[in-house]
Structures are given as structure tokens and as C-alpha cells.
Write a protein that binds this DNA or RNA. Structure first.
Lengths: 330, 330
DNA sequence: TTGTAAGCGTTATCAC
DNA sequence: GTGATAACGCTTACAA
């Protein structure tokens, strides 16, 4: 059974134009061909409504112009912002996005890379949590926020610098006793450096600080509230500057403090990390270290599309910036 | 030049297993084959790390197991939530997602449908704004929030019912003078029915109400503030119940009111629409009519994958629900 | 320059 | 039940 009402093929166009198949291919691909032939072919193609079949083309050329994006979830605004920018950056370079959501499941992540092999994508950009994700050595892969090995480029914000910046800012804003609050995945990643940068600054400046970090926990973990209550003396917090691992964490802490009657930023100033905005494009949720999401996306796309795999750097950190958002006094 | 370090093909597996090509194909596709052969083939496939080439398969079968998602943007949380649920629903049925972002650009929307033809996706789900989008009659298309024609199924929340529900709720909460505030695209869509439902209830109950609707405007359009100020008499708003077209609008209005010294929900109660949560999964932004996003996604996927195109309904409205979120007194 | 023909990796139709 | 073989729609030498 030949598909009757299906799309016309190059063969149909060739017949319609009265030229050979190869000639049609050349016209479609913009290769040099006699002007009169080109016109005939173009007319025939338009008349029949011809569209290339990228599956046939891909089979032949081994190029699909498709990049896989492996992302945990689009529910969290940072991930959806990142996905947005990545997809736009890919489209700009004429690449399509195959979106793969993993829900933070290491097995699903592994399944993605198999899927990618079967679907012959030209490469992948992934934000993953599987510590021993086994990737396909032949497939260009760019990791976000996680270092795999020197052959897998990793793109991240300057998390260390961001941590330092937060501590420095709080210091400049007059805070005397700092704290760093964070939840994190137990699998090590670039974002861990937010803490390291923070500590590094505090130590260098001889600042009084504490660290409260819980792995594989919720931002709403009761231990954070407990910690805050323990530091509440006569209705005043003994800490006056808090750096939170994410804007989300900052938001939770702020709520907790306000419930406890501690004023933000009056009594205690808070700086978050990410630079997310309410409803995606309105005000910041808090004063924060802003990730250069668009640059991160552009960099990932550039790297994954680089032909010369031997020339890609193992790691690229992009500069962050500070933005006031109502949880600091300035 | 034959690709040397490329993936093994069925031919390689056949040679390795010492069987014919066709036999390998049968094993891979789970078709009946002698047990001894099956084992030999499976062993050979595992040994060589064989993976099907979906491009070759798709070329032959005309099935790609890929659905295109046409979405304006992932920056707005409603769209990213929707995209999340759609992608999950597709994955559940073993379909891949090709993500196409349009930035609300009618031309980009049109380009998508051409892209889809070339990429031989099995169907598409689109939330579009191009009033005369020309779709491919052979390609299953499901529209979200916009009715095209009786042959293009449209899936939406029960916007009319939601509008009624909001008015009813405000009425029950004791509001005497209602208002509906909204910005919208100038191209008609299902969401317009939020207003109609609201009006319908107000009229049926003989409630005093006003409508303020601006097309192709920002939620932050100064005319909203102007409107509110005009209704401010002695520091009190002459309106005591506001239904906003979206949660985002509700948030903007609430801010405006609080700046004006009007207490929410003390002086005026507000209900939004969408049911979005802060950071995707925390508290609601406001009291709101919640869209059944997961159900919408499931329905879209079911429809786009329906084999019998003649059996699909032209329109499906899914039930909404009310959730209190701090901008109403209860 | 234009036309011809050999694949790309599958699936599917047949004889065996 | 198994194994050649012809498509699928395209690109690309290579021959005319």
C-alpha cells in the first residue's frame, strides 16, 4: 500500500518539473544548478507543497539538527527559565529541542541517554543528578552545574564568586554575625561552591559565621526553624545577615522570621541566589546573587555544537551579579 | 568513507549472531522467532551495544513517536507548568517531546507547523495566538485555549464556569460591588469566557459590577491604577470584590491596592485565575480559580494520539476549582 | 552542468 | 520459522 495522500517526495517534484532527482536535491540544498532548472524545480516544489523529509535526510547525513535537553522538572522556575533560554539559543542556531524531563530520577536520566542514541540527536545538554551517569562517548554532552570529567564540558555560574559576593555584601551592609543556610543534593555539584565562597570570604575577613546545610532535605525542613528559634534572644535574632543557597530558601526563611516577629530587612538581612522573578518577569523575590542564565544557555549551546571536540574547555564559570530585592537595607 | 566508530547496525548484529537481517529485526521488535535464534541475537546485540536507529525506522514506518509542543514561552509559570505536565504525559505514553517556543510571534507559530512537517512528528499540541494559523490537515493537532474549527479539537479549562465561580464566591463572601479586571490578547480565545461567566452570574444575581478589560496591554498598564484611584473615596475603595483574569493580574492589583493603603482582604477581596504557586510548589499567590493543568495535559495527549480522527470532540472543557489563598476572608 | 545509481538502517513481503 | 530482497526519501559520488 503506497501512501496516497501523503506528502510529495523529491521524486514527485522531479517528475513534475521534468528534471532528474539529483537536480531537485541540489536545488533544495542550494547547490549550484542551471537557472532555468532551479526555477522549474522551485515552481514544481511550491505547486506540490513539497517539504523535505528530515528523517530520510538524517538517515543519510547523520545530522538531525536536534539537541536533547535533560532537565529535572519545569515546575521549579530556575529550571524553566534555563530551559527557555536553552531552547531559544538552539532555535537561533537552527536546532530543535527534544525535551526530556527526569524528575530528579537517576534511572530516568540514564534512560534519556539511551533514548538519545536511538533518536540520533546531535548532542545533549543536561542538568543531572545521577553521580555515575554513563554517557555515550561519541555524543557531545554538556553538563550544567556538574563536573563529570575533563572530556565533558561543564557550564556553571561562578558559584564560588557568588558566595563571596554575598558575604561581602552582607558585611558591607553592616552585618556582624552571618549564617549560610542551604539544602542540597547529596551528590556533589558546582552549587556546593556557594558555601565555599561564602566561607572563604568570612574567613579572610575574620567574620563571625555559621553554616547550616542539610542534604536531600526540603527547604521547609523543621531544622531550619529550630535553628532560628535557638538563635532568638529576647525577640531579637543573634544573627543579622543570612545568605541562603537559593531564592526559594531565602523566601522560606524570610517567612519563618516574619512569623517569629523578626523584621526583614530591619533586624536581619537576607541574600538569596538565582535571581528569579515573581511570575517570571516581575520583581525579585529577595535580594540575590543573579545567575547569568542567558549566557549560561548560550555557552552550553556553543559548546555542544562545537565541531572540534578536542578544543572544548572542561569547565566554564560565568560571572554573577548582585541585585537588591527588598531583603537588604540599601 | 564508511563511519568507523559509529553505532553497530542490524547488519552487524546479524553477522555477529550468524543469522539473517530479517531475524534480527524480528527479535528487536518482539515478533515471534525461534528461541535459540532470539538468544543468539540478544547476546550479539548486547555485546555490540546495538541501539535501534529511529531515523531509519521512522523513514520506513512513518511513525516517529514524537509530538511537537508549540508554546509561547517558559518564562510565565502557567506555560511552564503546562509544558511540564504535557511532557510528562507524553513520556508516560512513550512519546518524545519536541519543544517549540514562539514568543507569541504569529510568524514563528506558522514556521513551527512547517518544521513539524519536515520533522515528521506524529502530531502537535499548541497554545497559539495566530488567528489565521494555517495548519496541516494531515497532522493531528490539538489546540489549547483556542477554538479553530470543528476538526481541530480544543482543550481548555471551564473558563466560563470559573468566571461564574469567582463571582459566586465573592458574593458569598459578602462583596456588594464587584469588578472584573483583565488584560488579554486581541485574538479571541477560550479565556475570554472568564469574563462571560463572571458577568453571567452577576446579572443572574442582580449584582452590581464593572468590567475593565484591555487588549494587548500589560498587566501593569497605568489604566488599572487610574481606575482604582478613581474608585477611592476617603481612603476606601467603593469596590469590595475583584475578580482578576489571572493570578498575575491579581498580584499586580493587590500591590497597587496596598500601596494605596487599601487592605487586602480586609477592605477588598480578590480572586485570581490559574492556581499558580510560588516557586512552582509553595503557597498560592492569591485566592484563585485553579486550572486542572494535569488533566488538561492528559486530555491533550489522549486526543493527539487518538487514531480515529473522526471520533475526536471539537471541544473539551475541564472543571476548575476554587482555592483560598489569602486574598479573601474565610 | 545534468542525470544515474548506490547506499543510509530499517521494515515487510515473499519464497524457501 | 527463517532468510533474501525490495522499498522508505534522501544525499552524493560518478558517469554522461
Amino acid at each position: 500500500m503506497k501512501n496516497s495522500n501523503s506528502m510529495p517526495t523529491m521524486k514527485d517534484v522531479a517528475k513534475e518539473a521534468g528534471v532528474a532527482l539529483g537536480t531537485v536535491s541540489k536545488v533544495i540544498n542550494g547547490l549550484p544548478v542551471g537557472e532555468s532548472y532551479r526555477l522549474k524545480v522551485e515552481a514544481a516544489a511550491k505547486k506540490l507543497g513539497y517539504q523535505v523529509n528530515n528523517y530520510a535526510r538524517g538517515l543519510k547525513t547523520n545530522k538531525t539538527y536536534t539537541i536533547a535537553l535533560i532537565i529535572p522538572s519545569l515546575i521549579h522556575p530556575y529550571f524553566s527559565l534555563l530551559t527557555h533560554e536553552l531552547t531559544k539559543a538552539l532555535a537561533q542556531r537552527n536546532y530543535r529541542t527534544m525535551l526530556l524531563l527526569t524528575d530528579f530520577d537517576p534511572q530516568a536520566e540514564q534512560a534519556c541517554i539511551q533514548m538519545m542514541q536511538q533518536n540520533k540527536v546531535d548532542g545533549a545538554i543536561g542538568l543531572t543528578y545521577n553521580p555515575n551517569l554513563k554517557l555515550d562517548g561519541n555524543l557531545p554532552f554538556v553538563a550544567i552545574d556538574r563536573y563529570f570529567s575533563s572530556t565533558v564540558p561543564c557550564v556553571a555560574a561562578d558559584n564560588f564568586g557568588g558566595g563571596r559576593m554575598a558575604a561581602e555584601k552582607l558585611n558591607q551592609l553592616g552585618c556582624k554575625k552571618l549564617a549560610f543556610l542551604r539544602t542540597a543534593s547529596s551528590v556533589p555539584g558546582e552549587t556546593d561552591k556557594r558555601r565555599q565562597g561564602f566561607e572563604s570570604y568570612c574567613i579572610s575577613q575574620n567574620l563571625d559565621y555559621e553554616i547550616l546545610e542539610f542534604f536531600d532535605a526540603q527547604d521547609t525542613d523543621p531544622r531550619f526553624e529550630q535553628y532560628l528559634r535557638e538563635h532568638l534572644v529576647d525577640g531579637k535574632l543573634t544573627i543579622d545577615g543570612i545568605f541562603c543557597g537559593t531564592d526559594r530558601m531565602a523566601f522560606v526563611i524570610r517567612n519563618l522570621l516574619e512569623e517569629m516577629g523578626v523584621s526583614v530587612p530591619g533586624d536581619v538581612q537576607i541574600i538569596g541566589f538565582d535571581g528569579l522573578r515573581r511570575f517570571g518577569d516581575q520583581e525579585l523575590h529577595c535580594s540575590t546573587i543573579v545567575q547569568p542564565v542567558e549566557q549560561i544557555a548560550q555557552t552550553c549551546v556553543n559548546l555542544v555544537l562545537t565541531e572540534d571536540r578536542s578544543a572544548v574547555p572542561a569547565m566554564i564559570c560565568l560571572p554573577v551579579s548582585y541585585a537588591a530585592g527588598g531583603t537588604t537595607r540599601e
